[in-house]
Structure formats: structure tokens, C-alpha cells
Amino acid sequence: MRQDSPLWHAKHVVRAFLLLIIAVIALVLLRSLLVPDSWGQFGWYRGDNIAEQRAKEQRHGGNISCLECHDQEYETIAGAGHANVKCEGCHAPVALHAVDGEWVKEMPVRREAELCLNCHQWLDARPRAFPQVRPREHVEEQGGEFGPAVCFDCHDPHAPL
């Protein structure tokens, strides 16, 4: 380029323009790398997260999930005072015990008064109509002696009373 050409004097402008183009390309490139693919699919968040949230493992299966192997207990509970109490409430989520019919781990069986008292200990905040006991008085009234598993002497947790 000749020194008397007007572009020769505009060299600093050309440089600045080139730098701007490089900056814009870098921005577009970085954005495409850093912004997740599904961003903005449904809103200002990562759309793929919806599917991820939905695909999480379901661990509680409800009483129906116990029926296949424990049909007797299932029937007993359904026809007695604990019909609304869920198997998994006293034991554990079914997924910790069996998955797709395959045995995983022993199901916990808590034969402890503490378990019963979670619901039936007399408390002033509980609804009056709900069956509650003052455990020591209750056991002594029946002529027994209070112990950590005393409830099961008289009550079957699957069919209480």
C-alpha cells in the first residue's frame, strides 16, 4: 500500500475494527460453549432439567407394592384399625427392600413402643378424637409393666385393638 493512500492513515481504524470482529466472534463462540443447549426452551432456565427432575427414582410405592409378596399382611391391614397407615410409614420405602420384584435388603421391623408412641402418645396438640394413651398409666391400668416393646404384648400393629 502506498504511503499516500488514505487507507494507510486509517490503519489504526482497520486494527480496531479487526479487534472488534475478533471480540464478537469470541463472544459468540464462548456463549455457544457456556450456555446450555436447552437454555430458554421453556423459560430462562435449562429446559433439560425438567426431564432430569422427572426421571428421579421413586422410592415409595404405596401398600399396593407390598401386595405381591405380602398379601396376607396387606389384607390384614386393609381390614383393621390401621387401614390408613401405610406399610412404608412404619417399615421403610419399598425401593430399599425390593426393586422390580428383586430382593434388595431386609425390611426393618421396629417392634418398639417408641414407634407406636410417635402417633399414640398423649399430646395436648393432637386432635382430641385421635386415639392416644399416656403409656405408663395405660400399661399399669392393664396390670402390666412398662417396657420398650410392651405394646406388642396386647396389640398387633397390623390389626390393632
Binding site: 427432575q53 422427572r54 427414582e57 421413586q58 415409595h60 390408613n84 401405610k86 412404608e88 410409614g89
Partner: peptide, 23 residues
């Protein structure tokens, strides 16, 4: 809390609703 979104959107209720013995 997600209202158990993985249960709710797949035909179940939340774990807390399912387990509550008194509704």
C-alpha cells in the same frame, strides 16, 4: 421441596401425601 416432581408427573402423589396416616 419439589412436590416430588418425579412422582407427581408420573401418576403418583408426593411421598408426604402418600404416607400421611390421617389425610
Amino acid at each position: 421441596c419439589t412436590w416430588c416432581y418425579h412422582r407427581l408427573t408420573n401418576g403418583r402423589k408426593t411421598a408426604c401425601v402418600d404416607i400421611c396416616p390421617v389425610g
